[in-house]
Design a binder for these strands. Structure first.
Lengths: 231, 231
DNA sequence: TCACAAGCAAGAGCGGTGCTCTCGTTTCAT
DNA sequence: ATGAAACGAGAGCACCGCTCTTGCTTGTGA
């Protein structure tokens, strides 16, 4: 069995969670740059060296927070998709986009952790790869159901992009046409361009009514992947 | 006259430049997080406290680097636009996009400084606002010349977005129709979504032939702001 | 059951950081 | 020429990530 063996193991789980919680609090308050292991330990009433029993280094703590953040935004996207189950593909698409944006606005520092400049080294740890794909999978699924349902309308693929489009399609969604796969990847990154500019303040004194602006932009993004505007 | 008054003022300019150069070197080598004032001073053969005569704090040094980076990518965009002077608007658009991407790939850490997570506090210093708009101005100018020339083709503006579109248009380009202004802002942010995902590694094991992928995506972005594909 | 290994908290300490303050010295303007 | 401003050097403060050692506690296998 994989049940908790005893008080020791249970305590370890609880303390690990408490460390991550406190770290998230400091992250939200001051940002990733000022997140300090010593301050976390201090706040938890333990000495800093004790914290290294749970996370081998500061970067490992950050990696754990990154994984959690990916899972959190991924769950938000999945939940939005499920809630819009009965709606038309384009409406489900925008619902998911808005959920991602809402999560980002609510957790700006966690968003910065996963979609801002890579903070630790330069290569993402292996643990983060799967959680990082959850939002993308939701978007792919919406497109897939539109494709097998009422169909999608896409412009033709340029000749020089066809080999790469075939490769991308094989990698992320072998059942979808290459033109759709490549449009999805582009829309995926452009969605986070919209969100990043809002969260990182590039829209300051440019866009005011960001809700409405984003809703329209997200809808056009959905049309760019071929989702049809109306019956 | 504003000429240099003496050896002292000349030395100050040179030392300030040397500090920024060395800081940029360390930035390119290790990233913004590991940029250390002491290390910069050490490398320049001066003591760390002397460096504070030139930059009041580490954040001020970073701000100076941010301004320079904005100017650098802005100059690259303007240069690309000038080089494509005679081409059709859509081709000039993609030329500018490719120049921005090329700059970002060549200077990933400087790119991260300006389009990644805000590193110092949360509000951008006043000095950065004007340089930050240079790329945007280039894109606006391309659209303006297309608009007053062969025209642009844009989908209708949703009713609920019209007030905000009018506001944006008045802010950034009063001579352009609101629908065009709002499309420009969206495309602007989406362009940096594409670039950020590539520079920050989100395309790892997803997109391989990034040159071709980006070229097509940038071209479609140009069409999204109404630039016409062919005569 | 009990000894032993593993897990754990605590403390001291190392090298590094941003930043401040003081103290002579050099440069410039009056 | 003299006084003010700018400057470089050094010491020092508080904090950081991280390591090592020292005892104590917990769980386990003989």
């Amino acid at each position: 069995m994989t049940t908790v063996r005893g008080a020791r193991a249970r305590a370890r789980i609880e303390i690990t969670a408490a460390i991550k919680d406190e770290a998230r609090t400091q992250l939200a308050a001051e940002g990733a740059a000022k997140l300090s292991l010593r301050a976390v330990a201090r706040e938890l009433g333990m000495v800093s060296s004790a914290l290294y029993r749970y996370f081998p280094s500061r970067d490992d703590l950050l990696t754990a927070l990154i994984v959690d953040a990916y899972d959190s935004v991924g769950a938000a996207a999945e939940q939005a998709a499920a809630a819009a189950e009965q709606e038309r593909p384009l409406d489900r698409w925008t619902a998911v986009c808005r959920a991602v944006r809402a999560w980002a606005v609510a957790h700006p520092h966690e968003y910065a952790l996963i979609y801002g400049s890579p903070v630790p080294g330069y290569t993402a740890p292996q643990d983060t790869i799967v959680p990082a794909s959850r939002v993308g999978l939701v978007l792919i699924d919406i497109a897939r159901r539109a494709h097998t349902g009422e169909g999608v309308a896409l412009p033709p693929l340029p000749d020089d992009l066809r080999p790469e489009a075939v490769r991308i399609s094989a990698d992320i969604a072998p059942d979808l046409p290459p033109a759709l796969a490549v449009a999805l990847v582009a829309a995926w990154s452009q969605l986070f361009g919209l969100v990043s500019f809002e969260v990182f303040g590039q829209f300051h004194r440019v866009v005011e009514d960001r809700d409405t602006f984003f809703a329209t932009a997200a809808r056009r993004l959905g049309q760019d992947v071929g989702l049809l505007p109306r019956g």
